[in-house]
């Protein structure tokens, strides 16, 4: 990564350009007094800007958690909406400290673009939506159906691979954009619509009768989404990575936004370490305070609270936890222990 270029882009980092390796995102954020967080330009449940200018959403809450860890104040974030085209350049150019915008973790993006995914906080993947009167309960039952898919997406390729692998005869019908794909499904031109699962739940809300559509539990592709940082600051990367782990561990430990204060009096060693009552040296090793994880949970809740509020059972989207459930509860979320 061209350090000089970033320093040029961000005057505040000029001094860093003289160092052999840039390693001061955390210091820079502290000095600036807020975190600059790249989000999508408006995606139901993930990042939405309200009329008053404030932001909400799953991706937004991750940055608020990070700000709470650093400043003990989740409001110290500036959200920078970014298009799919601009997002990685903005990160590389140092215009943002972190990209929290549903971006799929791939080899190309890490090794090719010089970025690091700090983990996965949402396992998305290709799914299928059918009409309720179709009694299928599995994507394997989609033989002899017409399937609507948006042209030029990985979903078209994904669907045809899934069908051929499973000896399913299905007719793929492509549409130029999202709305026309949905219209194809709604008007009965297709029996099935396929897209990434989170997108299907959002699209379903646009149907005149959402309850007439059912989204199958199958996920047939890997779209792991997570926060992204530059690959030149391992200390920052490590902090972001552990904030994600902390939110997941909090749910597993039962630490919530409403009991996090009480948790400081817990007798359970894992809980005591989590809130920093024991193992008080762990936070400072990340460059933050002993109660860093408790700050994050106090600000936005644990992973389950964030999920439910924004995209899960307490939201309009109502996306089942599915893969994004804890490993102990039927999903695959698994965070290394804080110790």
């Amino acid at each position: 990564m061209p350090i000089g270029f970033r320093a040029f882009a961000l005057a505040g980092t000029l001094f860093a350009a003289t160092l052999p390796a840039f390693s001061g995102t955390l210091d820079e954020v502290r000095k600036r007094g807020n975190l600059v967080c790249g989000v999508s330009m408006g995606l139901l449940g993930f990042s939405e800007q309200k009329p008053d200018g404030s932001w909400t959403g799953f991706d937004v809450d991750f940055c608020r958690a990070l700000a709470a860890v650093i400043f003990d104040d989740p409001k110290k974030v500036t959200f920078q909406p970014l298009s799919a085209l601009d997002r990685f350049d903005a990160l590389k150019a140092g215009k943002i400290d972190i990209l929290s915008r549903n971006s799929t973790w791939t080899l190309e993006r890490e090794a090719g673009l010089g970025l690091l995914f700090a983990g996965v906080n949402f396992y998305d993947g290709q799914g299928f939506m059918i009409r309720r009167d179709n009694k299928a309960v599995s994507a394997l039952e989609l033989n002899r159906t017409r399937v609507c898919v948006q042209a030029g997406t990985t979903n078209a390729q994904g669907a045809s691979e899934f069908f051929s692998t499973n000896s399913i005869t299905a007719e793929l019908k492509t549409f130029p954009d999202g709305p026309s794909t949905l219209r194809g499904f709604e008007t009965g031109e297709c029996d099935v619509m396929t897209a990434d699962n989170s997108g299907l739940f959002a699209e379903r809300l646009r149907l005149a009768r959402a309850s007439e559509a059912v989204i199958l539990p199958d996920i047939v592709s890997k779209e792991p989404l997570g926060p992204v940082v530059r690959n030149d600051d391992v200390r920052w990367y490590t902090l972001v990575r552990w904030v994600n782990f902390a939110l997941i561990n909090a749910e597993e430990l039962g630490v919530t936004s409403s009991n996090v204060t009480e948790a400081k009096r817990s007798t359970k060693p894992d809980v005591r370490r989590f809130v920093g009552v024991d193992g008080a040296d762990l936070g400072p090793k990340l460059g933050v305070t002993a109660d860093w994880a408790a700050r994050a949970v106090a600000a936005v809740g644990n992973y389950g609270e964030i999920y439910d509020r924004n995209v899960g059972s307490k939201s309009r989207l109502g996306i089942p936890r599915g893969l994004n459930q804890l490993w102990t509860e039927g999903g695959i979320l698994y965070a290394p222990p804080i110790r």
Binding site: G45, G57, K314, S315, R316, G318
Partner: peptide, 11 residues
């Protein structure tokens, strides 16, 4: 757009 309360149930 998101509501903090439980969404209304359709019955």
């Amino acid at each position: 757009m998101m509501v903090s309360a439980y969404p209304a149930l359709l019955i």
